[in-house]
Amino acid sequence: MQTDTPAASRTPVAVPVPEPGAPRRGRPRSEAAEQAIFAAVEQLMEEGVGLAELSIERVAAQAGVGKATIYRRWTNMEALLVDVVARLEAPAPQLTGGTVHEELVGMVEYMRKRGLAKRSRWVLKSALGQMNDWPELRATYQERVVKPRRELVRTIVRRGIDEGVLRTDLDVELVCEVLIGPILLRTILWDDAPLDDPELARKMIDAVLNGVGASPSGGECH
């Protein structure tokens, strides 16, 4: 008949001790779960569910995840929807270190492509359109997505003023509006205006920098 070995005489099991500075093991951030959540929101919208009708519970059920999985990543539904809409759009533009002319053309080109995406992707167009009826979501989107892009334009304009490429006697905001206004007109107000010309961004910036008068005072500005 076997008897249990006294606890005091058992051979201790070695427990590995993590090295100093080693990362702690815990629940990893699941890329698959995030993609499932994003896909669930897009699918619901494609099925005609409005932004105001979406909820954490509904998205979790569609994605096949628990509500806690969503709340670990987003504090509320508005924060999730902002990320979804930003994901549907082209990645935010980045400064390249090129000339002021090149940076401005790059910014307008980004907005041209964004306008094309809005026209071709019903989900994106629907989401952006519904934001106007949801003040909380629109405010969050403006703060997290639109505001940084506007500041990027201001950065380019300030550099242009410092380098003497742009007039120094004009207000920075006015210069931004004059430079970016034409593409906003086409992408937001005039939905049927053509955007398929790959040279459109350069043409717009050149027209503003060189002037549209019959006898411009200066040559082409690069």
Rank of each mutant, 00 (worst) to 15 (best):
G64R: 08
R154G: 03
V175Q: 04
G115H: 04
L54V: 11
G64H: 07
A39R: 15
R159W: 09
E136L: 09
E57N: 10
I156K: 08
R119V: 06
Q142F: 08
E57F: 12
R119P: 02
V145T: 13
E53V: 05
T96Q: 14
R144L: 10
P93E: 11
V59L: 01
L81V: 08
M107Y: 05
V100T: 09
E42M: 04
Y141P: 00
G160T: 03
L116D: 01
W122R: 11
R159K: 13
L95S: 11
V65L: 10
L166F: 08
V105F: 05
E136F: 03
E109C: 08
V153W: 03
E109H: 13
R87N: 10
Q43P: 02
V172T: 11
T99C: 08
I156R: 05
G98W: 00
I156S: 03
A68P: 12
T75R: 15
E103P: 05
Y141S: 01
S120P: 04
L174M: 13
C176G: 07
L88Y: 06
L54M: 12
V153T: 14
G97W: 05
R158H: 10
P93A: 08
Q94A: 12
Y71G: 04
A39L: 11
T96C: 02
R73L: 12
D133F: 11
A61C: 01
R112Y: 02
G48T: 10
E109A: 15
E103W: 00
A61K: 10
I156C: 05
R158M: 05
M111L: 15
I37E: 01
R121V: 10
V123K: 00
R144Y: 10
L152A: 07
M111R: 05
G129R: 11
V157M: 04
E78R: 11
A86N: 07
L137D: 02
V175F: 02
R150A: 09
A32K: 14
L174P: 09
E143H: 15
L170Y: 05
G97H: 02
Y71M: 08
G160C: 06
V123S: 06
K113I: 14
G64E: 03
K118P: 00
V108Q: 02
R121W: 06
R150V: 14
K67D: 12
Q43M: 13
D83E: 15
P148M: 12
T168M: 08
R154C: 03
V49I: 14
R159Q: 08
T99P: 14
Y110V: 06
V123C: 07
S120F: 09
Q130K: 06
A63C: 10
A39N: 09
D162M: 12
T155A: 11
L80T: 01
A52L: 12
L88F: 01
L116I: 14
L88V: 05
V172W: 04
D133C: 11
I161A: 05
Q130I: 04
V41I: 07
P148V: 11
V100M: 01
R72L: 13
E42Q: 14
V108A: 07
A79P: 05
